[in-house]
Design a protein around this nucleic acid. Structure first.
Length: 624
RNA sequence: GCCCCGGUAGCUUAGCGGUUAUAGCAGCGGCCUUGUAAGCCGCGGGUCGCGGGUUCAAAUCCCGCCCGGGGCUCCA
């Protein structure tokens, strides 16, 4: 038995003429039903009343879930090539109908044996369209979403494993997760993808409290406003990632954010995916906003003259922004946005040998980047996905990736290739609500070079198609900030003091005068520190010193320096160190030593000056 | 898209049929001149998201819409 189940706003149908002798009686008029779950049903050889009941039970479950109670059983032969005889089919359809009534469902049925015309309006929610295949003889009922072709569904069948650095690959259900709590969370998140949490993600509170970013109601959901402190943090991370990728050898470019939806090279790529683009209408054209730098870079590369001597050819852009029009319910703070900043680095490789070398370089690059941003190896988990075929011929290579990562990784293996890549790995961050989200990722693309007409010329002067790697070494920058904030919250929950890495702290040093007599001294010290490319400010507001210290602590400022007559006379500063506790918290140190310490700790990281007035009385307040 | 929850001052929020709608923080004015996480006093600030309905009376109850959050689902 096959059922195409459509949760519909309405359906109208009209019996046109009888097709077979035993057709049921019906009037040839228009029937209309509203708010109805339409069941296009076909009865196959071997179907019994039992599996009809089973079908209805499943449907009843669905009805309860979507809070509906009206069904239309619509005999529809076109779902199977293995139909039961009409007399058998009518019998079973009637069984379904009466059983559904017994369950309290409001049941309608279109007549069997007629040629009918119909029009239907299907609801837009993800569960609205489902295909059910109810097998006879107690086999498990199979439920599939119709929006993908059945064949594609089959190709997507996943096998889950844990791959250990020593090369042992264990089916997920047999792996002992003791000591690998986050990997366990990743595995269950990826495989089950179901979780009931009714809680604001902690980072959303922090992003507002720290004046980093906030929702912008006047825009579209998932498009954020960034306050000065947030913009500073974000642009520092962008700068850092860019420096690392350039050092790896990438050519930095910039490409348009919108493209003609009818451009021939783009159409086939777009059509592989559900419509999740923003569309911009402009006079006679429809343009879509990019969801990564793929288009711009591929189009650029397809116009370039490339020799085998140039390979591997790396090309890079910090996409500001990429757009994905995620469904409104999928958005979550800085974790999932509709407009986000993402580094996108492609590499053209001559062959699979070169690909392997390059993937390893990029894996190491991504680890360096994440750890430079402020996440440790404990903070992220690896997932690797590949086709069975690719695994069988490249087993050692795959194991070497996990060895470099140094912890067991989650493996998803597909029976056949459905996407454009044969292998993809990601680093996933697990947050305080046990949600996993991908940061870094790299993919081996075997399809798009040809699609976009990207070629290189080999030693013999022949035109060849390269393989393409797609890497985002840090993932979306907003998501990195989400990870840092969630990590800080975890630290806070465990009883320690939360903070951002020193090089990302908007204010690195805050100078606080004990009273107005020391204002000019504070200003002088502020200028002196700022000269060394350290972000420093001073609190000139008419508040008590205690109050100023409290506020500086709430801003997560790493170093707080109080200036009074003692400091002026001895030249020794009283530096309150956020990372220390108790009596050690206040360190007596010379200004030069403080400067040295900060320079040492931030070395190798980009610097940007404070983008706000150094005197706090001159600053507006954006939130809190 | 669907389900659940929410929308009262810049922010957090009380009130949940009945005088002139709370309070804290922030802002502004003044006092205080401070030794390591909240000093004191005063002032200004509101189409209670929008529209309709019920009622003698609506922030409060009902309907519709808008916006936000969470969940489902999805994630190139």
């Amino acid at each position: 038995m096959k059922i195409l189940q459509l949760h519909s706003n309405f359906i109208e149908y009209r019996p046109v003429e009888k097709e077979i002798a035993i057709a049921e009686e019906a009037e040839p008029k228009v029937y209309r039903l509203e708010e109805v779950v339409v069941l296009f049903t076909c009865i196959e050889k071997g179907d019994t009343p039992e599996n009809a009941y089973r079908a209805i039970n499943e449907i009843k479950e669905f009805l309860d879930k979507v809070k509906a109670n009206r069904i239309l059983i619509y005999p529809y032969a076109h779902l199977s090539a293995d139909l039961a005889s009409p007399s058998e089919a009518i019998k079973i359809l009637r069984e379904m109908e009466s059983y559904a009534r017994e369950l309290g469902i409001e049941v309608y049925r279109a007549p069997f044996g007629w040629c009918k015309e119909f029009s239907i309006s299907v609801k837009g929610h993800p569960l609205a369209e489902q295909f059910k295949s109810i097998l006879a003889e107690g086999k498990t009922a199979k439920e599939e979403i119709v929006s993908r072709a059945l064949e594609a569904e089959e190709k997507l069948k996943s096998y889950w494993f844990i791959l250990k650095p020593d090369g042992e690959m264990i089916p997920v259900e047999e792996f002992d997760f003791v000591g690998y709590e986050n990997l366990k969370k990743l595995a269950s998140y990826e495989m089950a993808k179901s979780r009931v949490v009714h809680q604001q993600p902690p980072h959303t509170l922090l992003m507002r409290k720290l004046e980093i970013a906030d929702y912008e109601e006047a825009s579209d959901p998932g498009n954020f406003r960034w306050y000065p402190k947030g913009e500073l943090i974000k642009s520092l991370i962008e700068e850092y990632v860019t420096e690392k990728v350039i050092a790896y050898g990438a050519l930095k470019v910039e490409t348009p954010i919108m493209y003609d939806i009818n451009h021939p090279a783009l159409a086939s790529y777009l059509h592989r995916f559900p419509a999740r683009q923003y569309i911009v209408k402009s006079e006679d054209k429809d343009l879509f906003l990019r969801f990564s730098a793929c288009f711009g870079q591929f189009l650029m590369l397809s116009d370039a003259q490339i020799s085998y001597k140039h390979l591997p050819l790396r090309i890079y852009e910090m996409t500001h922004y990429s757009f994905r029009r995620e469904k409104s319910g999928e958005l979550a703070g800085l974790r999932r946005l509709r407009a986000f900043t993402m580094p996108d680095c492609h590499a053209l490789c001559a062959d699979m040998e070169q690909v392997k070398e390059e993937v390893i370089k990029r894996l190491k690059l991504s680890m360096e980047v994440l750890e430079g941003i402020g996440l440790t190896r404990d903070d992220y988990e690896m997932a690797i996905r590949f086709t069975k075929n690719f695994y069988e011929s490249n087993r050692d290579f795959i194991v070497s990736l996990v060895k470099i990562f140094g912890k067991p990784a989650l493996v998803e293996m597909w029976e056949e290739r459905f996407f454009y890549f044969v292998l993809k790995w990601e680093f996933n961050f697990i947050d305080n609500l046990d949600k996993a989200s991908a940061l870094s990722t790299d993919q081996i693309d075997v399809e798009n070079a040809e699609r976009y007409g990207i070629y290189y010329v080999d030693e013999k002067g022949e035109r060849k198609t390269p393989l393409i790697l797609h890497c985002s070494p840090s993932g979306a920058i907003e998501r990195d900030i989400y990870a840092l904030l969630e990590k800080a919250y975890r630290v806070y929950k465990s009883g320690s003091v939360p903070m951002l890495p020193l090089w990302l702290s908007p204010t690195q040093v805050r100078i606080i005068p004990i009273n107005e007599d020391f204002y000019s001294e504070c200003e002088k010290i502020t200028e002196e520190i700022a000269r060394h490319n350290i972000r420093v400010d001073w609190d000139d507001r008419p508040l008590t010193m205690q109050r100023k210290i409290r506020e500086a602590e709430m801003e997560w400022i790493p170093y707080i320096v109080v200036i009074g007559k003692e400091e002026v006379s001895t030249g020794l500063l009283a530096v309150r160190d956020r990372r220390l506790v108790g009596e050690q918290k206040i360190r007596k140190m010379r200004l030069e030593d403080l400067i040295d310490e900060i320079k040492k700790e931030t070395s190798g990281k980009p610097f940007k000056p404070l983008t706000m007035p150094a005197a706090l009385s001159k600053r507006p307040r954006f939130h809190r």
